[in-house]
């Protein structure tokens, strides 16, 4: 492939939204209130919309006849390069919101930089997505505050979720080979430069929510290299079910 780094770079962005969108989609009809149900479905919808733009572009770059659906649904588990954070399960509402919040803060910072990309398609998708992700971040931050500064029970639940999910945050700022190549060309975002700002923003919300910022220095990584947690396989089994069971058909 001529533009292999660009192709890989796009998947690195889009896989996060694909897997997180799938997780949020699982909640549909099961939310704690009709309003949160609608909001979570909406976030899922936004993320899949972004995924489609990215994969359509990736398919064009690859130029091998593969479609957005082939890319989304017909890779093997080791070929998905999303960060471990987004594949974590919906253990309870605190985990869903904690995961969303920890990703949203990164996502918005990332997209604001991607908007400056020399690659006009990526820049345009970023511009469109910023509007949506700003809303996601507002939604998840508001809920972190409600849960953190709500009741004793909610405080404990969201604190445990943040503590558990914290170990997956550092990976957001790891650079892959494709990342480095794209940064060099003025196309990609240097994620290492987002790290301080990220932890600063996250901490501000946690403090306002009367929550402790975890101090653990031990972090998990591997998603960007396709080495995932055990949760991903099951998620993919559902995501890919139709394409695997009924190959080469149009829907």
């Amino acid at each position: 492939m001529k533009n292999e780094n660009l192709y890989k770079y796009i998947l690195g962005i889009a896989d996060n939204s694909l897997i997180l969108g799938q997780r949020m989609g699982e909640l549909c009809g099961h939310g704690p209130s009709l309003e949160t149900d609608i909001a979570c479905t909406n976030i899922s919808l936004d993320l899949f919309g972004q995924v489609r733009s990215f994969y359509q572009y990736a398919a064009k770059i690859a130029g091998d006849g593969k479609t957005e659906d082939d890319i989304a649904m017909l890779r093997k588990e080791r070929e998905y390069v999303n960060v471990l954070l987004v594949e974590q399960p919906n253990t309870n509402f605190a985990y869903s919101i904690g995961r969303q919040f920890l990703f949203d803060v990164y996502h918005l910072l990332f997209l604001k930089e991607l908007e400056k990309s020399k690659d006009l398609t990526l820049s345009a998708i970023a511009t469109k997505s910023i509007k949506e992700v700003s809303y996601h971040q507002r939604f998840s931050s508001d809920w972190i505050k409600r849960l953190g500064d709500g009741t004793n029970e909610s405080h404990q639940k969201i604190q445990s979720a943040i503590d558990d999910l914290w170990t997956y945050t550092d990976e957001l700022f790891h650079q892959t080979g494709a990342d480095k190549a794209m940064v060099k060309e003025g196309i990609g975002v240097n994620v290492t430069t987002l790290k301080d700002k990220y932890y600063h923003l996250v901490k501000n919300v946690l403090v306002e929510s009367t929550l402790k910022t975890p101090e653990s220095k031990y972090f998990q990584k591997g998603g960007k290299q396709g080495i995932h947690t055990e949760h991903l396989g099951y998620l993919l089994a559902e995501l890919q079910y139709m394409q695997r069971a009924y190959p080469n058909m149009e829907w």
């Binding site: 989609g25 899949f48 659906d69 995501l239 139709m242 394409q243 829907w251």
Partner: peptide
């Protein structure tokens, strides 16, 4: 909602999500 995670294509998944969201809005 039983088919959101298993919709056969991204286009169908997005349409299904949007539809169910409409139903929630009606509610």
């Amino acid at each position: 909602g039983n088919w959101i995670t298993r919709a056969p294509s991204l286009r169908r998944k997005v349409a299904l999500l949007a539809k169910i969201q409409d139903e929630a809005g009606h509610g």
